[in-house]
């Protein structure tokens, strides 16, 4: 009886020690692996290494503007139209909150609103419209051909719907996030929170120039 009890005790002790050692090893391995992993983006990451497709459109003062003009800043680009009653004001207001939440870093963020309705959205109207959200926002318009080309470059689906004198435009609602090196990096959505945008934009601003893609 004594021998059996003693053997049992030793076996039990061995199991306990082995288990504890396993836990410790797992813990160490986990810590090491999370230490080497880089910061993680919360938005859908595109990890592209080539510059985003460039374009030339016109700003509120009729000056031609290209995407490359905004290198050095994180660009948040959204497509819509000024007679959009719900979605566009919602998203642009959110982007103005993102910029505000970034405080000083907000100066390194450029919001660009590109119209899908160039027939009704003149440069002056785009200027008035974007200024209502933030005076630093840039609203871009162009000819129908130019707009269609940019939309195609970014796979923006859009179509007019309703009567000719009072149509609306169905359109995709992604916000394109372009890093300071001009690469398309992340895609935001209508349901992306201000906090998520702020988190990911801070990561992009912290990256070393010429760093990872």
């Amino acid at each position: 009886m004594t021998i059996i009890t003693e053997r049992r005790t030793w076996t039990l002790a061995l199991v306990v020690v082995a288990f504890a050692a396993g836990l410790w090893a797992a813990h160490r391995w986990h810590r090491a692996s999370s230490a080497v992993a880089g910061p993680e983006f919360q938005l859908a990451s595109l990890s592209t290494s080539t510059p985003a497709q460039d374009f030339t459109l016109y700003d509120g003062e009729g000056r031609s503007r290209s995407l490359r003009d905004f290198r050095g800043r994180v660009v948040l680009m959204f497509f819509g139209f000024t007679r959009c009653p719900d979605v566009c004001p919602t998203e642009l207001f959110k982007l103005s909150q993102v910029k505000q939440s970034l405080a000083d870093d907000g100066a390194r963020v450029q919001v660009i609103f590109i119209t899908l309705d160039p027939e009704r959205d003149s440069p002056a109207l785009m200027q008035t419209y974007t200024s209502a959200f933030d005076p630093d926002f840039v609203g871009l318009t162009g000819s129908r051909e130019q707009i269609d080309k940019v939309a195609a470059q970014y796979y923006v689906a859009h179509a007019k719907a309703g009567p000719p004198d009072n149509y609306v435009i169905d359109h995709s609602t992604s916000t394109y996030v372009i890093d300071p090196a001009g690469r398309l990096r992340l895609l935001g959505r209508m349901d992306t929170s201000v906090e998520t945008f702020v988190h990911d934009i801070r990561l992009l601003l912290q990256e070393q120039p010429g760093g990872t893609g």
């Binding site: 009653p85 689906a157 859009h158 719907a161 169905d170 209508m190």
Partner: peptide, 15 residues
Amino acid sequence: IHNSSQQAGRMQMRP
């Protein structure tokens, strides 16, 4: 009165 829905990747609103 507008109904909104996501159709084929587009936000669609219809009276």
